[in-house]
Nucleic acid binder design. Sequence first.
DNA 1: CGGTAAAGTGGACACGTGTCCGCTTATCTC
DNA 2: GAGATAAGCGGACACGTGTCCACTTTACCG
Lengths: 185, 185
Amino acid sequence: MRMDQPELRADAASNRARIIQAARHVIADGGEVKLNAIAKQAGVGQGTLYRHFPTRENLLAEVYREDVGELVAAAPALLAEHEPLTALARWLDRVADYAQVKRGVFAAVEVAVSQDLAAHSLGPIGEALTALLDAGKAEGTVRPDIDARDLILLIGYLTRLQEAEWDSRARHLLQVILDGVRRRP
Amino acid sequence: MRMDQPELRADAASNRARIIQAARHVIADGGEVKLNAIAKQAGVGQGTLYRHFPTRENLLAEVYREDVGELVAAAPALLAEHEPLTALARWLDRVADYAQVKRGVFAAVEVAVSQDLAAHSLGPIGEALTALLDAGKAEGTVRPDIDARDLILLIGYLTRLQEAEWDSRARHLLQVILDGVRRRP
DNA sequence: CGGTAAAGTGGACACGTGTCCGCTTATCTC
DNA sequence: GAGATAAGCGGACACGTGTCCACTTTACCG
């Protein structure tokens, strides 16, 4: 649906790639993710970094593009194998997995969905989630007055969860949310 | 339960009071809440401000002490008049009201609850919420595997809601959460 | 090719947060 | 009241974020 790339100049493209690679390294090294440090390691100025990625989340979204892609791809696959509600539950489980291991993924997802919806075009994640919800609505097991953004908002607690309480709360609250999303009999 | 004050020195007490007052003014003026600006307006150094209130939320919690007090006080009152689930719903409504008008209140509440629970002592808000939940559990209308922190985490979406979508989402998602919290028949 | 206009660059800069530590001042004791 | 001492002060400083704009480079065109 998108016209290739908006014609990126050669040097710009290489800089962009180097920034992403540098970011990947920094993140892999596990420490804090300092933007200007990434710029320095990539051998570019801060201005360059910020032009390519206006916000931290934009950069993260790019770094985690593959992971997000997996999430998106998983939705139809799950729908094919399970009932809508089960598929939704499994998919959310998967999101939670990412959120635990790579906190950045979810932060990026959250922002991406907000931006996409604000631009009146649910992006890939929004579409995946919408597909899951729609299937449930069609079947009558998911309340009809819920959309992708709603769910993203609700599971946002995953970001604020502390490592120590993850085991006791993450899955559990996912269950509570699912109960709320389920259509009352 | 707390031993008066930990014996605050006279000048310290006056500084603390001036900081709070300055913060109130800045917040009332509606602009951004810049910590060092508050310090300057209060006529103290930044160090002083940060010693009295280590984090932004600590300061906000103090500024909004009265509002939080109202929330806490409302819980028993609501319980006396309504069934537990209704009381809980009303109380959450009230929290949402605060969250919309004074975003700072909720941020402060959220942090306070986290800290209190981490210190193994649900603070005032935790106690209020727990009372509401316990009443529902006793009556069998609230699922028993939910605690105050769970609910605070869930309604945390209120902070991330944009003004424009408040009307369409805030109350609505509160309803979804309540449905999840309700005990399955 | 050589010129040129637009795309891109990168580092200086402004700002807010939070820490640190040498100096000041309140309070207690004799 | 004078001296001691611990509590408190406050501004300088270090750091990360994000912006801005004078300069450089690329890609196109005659």
